[in-house]
Nucleic acid binder design. Sequence first.
DNA 1: CTAAAACTATGACATATGTCAGTTTTCCCC
DNA 2: GGGGAAAACTGACATATGTCATAGTTTTAG
Lengths: 228, 228
Amino acid sequence: MSRCENCIVRKFNALRAMSKEELKKVSDSKEVKTIKKGEPLFEEGEKLNGVYCVRNGVSKLSKLSANGKDQIVKLASTGELLGQRSVIAEEFSNLSAHAVSDMEVCYVPKEHILNSLKQNPDFTVEILRHMAHDLKEADDVIVNMSQKNVKQRMAEAFLYLKDYFGEDAEGYLVLTLSREDIANVVGTATESAIRIISEFKKKGWLRISGKRIGILEEKALRDLVEGF
Amino acid sequence: MSRCENCIVRKFNALRAMSKEELKKVSDSKEVKTIKKGEPLFEEGEKLNGVYCVRNGVSKLSKLSANGKDQIVKLASTGELLGQRSVIAEEFSNLSAHAVSDMEVCYVPKEHILNSLKQNPDFTVEILRHMAHDLKEADDVIVNMSQKNVKQRMAEAFLYLKDYFGEDAEGYLVLTLSREDIANVVGTATESAIRIISEFKKKGWLRISGKRIGILEEKALRDLVEGF
DNA sequence: CTAAAACTATGACATATGTCAGTTTTCCCC
DNA sequence: GGGGAAAACTGACATATGTCATAGTTTTAG
């Protein structure tokens, strides 16, 4: 089977700081899982006994509120480690993770993570760096949520989807999210998201083909985000 | 002068994981600073060459947006380390820090932090734990911002101020923020914040004495937050 | 102690956004 | 390929929230 030692994905996360021996142990006890679009990796409030290393596909990390709405806090794709925060803090997960496309992930029992934290300072610093980055991004999201209006946040979301997941040969965004998911990223009602997509389309900024969305006027979107 | 080795404040943050020798070095090179209410500790975009350990007083961490509004992301008080994220990621600060009450802080040059990160795994894990906690809180803020309305967030803010900073002998909140700061915590317009304070007062949930705010009906506020 | 500045408060109004209801389209699964 | 479920869309409407203008109040500085 595939060995962590040779896995390219590892290069993108803290596992790259693990020693040969550590990786060997991880590789021997890891479990490769296939997760279908829509299925959960884990749920809010669950006790996580390991972390998930994403080989393929995209996951949404979200939190459900009293009124039944989901807020998507982060989209995680190839190379990201899911669940590290909960495992490190030894707390229940504060977020749910669901696949938004078919996924292939490696489940790594937490013992390996906790051991390496104790014994491998490089690994710990690496984890720390990633978490520092996540924290900064979270701060940015907070500021955006409170200071930009829904249209601006929608525009920003499309630019984000392009930058992080790219476009296909025909110029459509590779990651296709349902309108509801888009609304939950942006933090608005599904109907509002749909209306704004229609508006952007009418203006010639986007083109739509079923679920697929293509960006036509990137500059216009950027200007809107900046408030021009 | 005061020595870090004997400082109680240290118990509340990652510095408690430092060894005697490390602390000695920190203590020898630290600089105690007094910061008046309203003055900055550091500004967004600034390169930080050290972290600030809060001995006394409260600081607001905020980010300015294009439209001139500030969003307060966190209030930090006794025991918190400010600037650790930027120092660790070796990036410019993404937030500004200003004193909202008179403060006494210790400035610790970053070398000590970075050295201990390399050499003291316990320290690193301790920092990691704190950052994991901050990240979780940030996620919660994101969800609150998108799923609760302004009234609910205002109610939550008062409960937060009570829980974290307490009440004085007369039952007023110890930390007095300007209406503008309250609005910037909640992410709303100052006028809206004022109106809601008036409304809560009219309902008998709060009492006001100049800038000072006292909570009279904690349960009513909690129910509002929960959506009853 | 007084004048100016900063902050707080309130009203009137505009508008962005959410909600509900109903229709149309797309997507699957048998 | 057809029927049914889910998703996408649209309109009408309610309302929460922001904006602007103005007045009152408290704090600060000289």
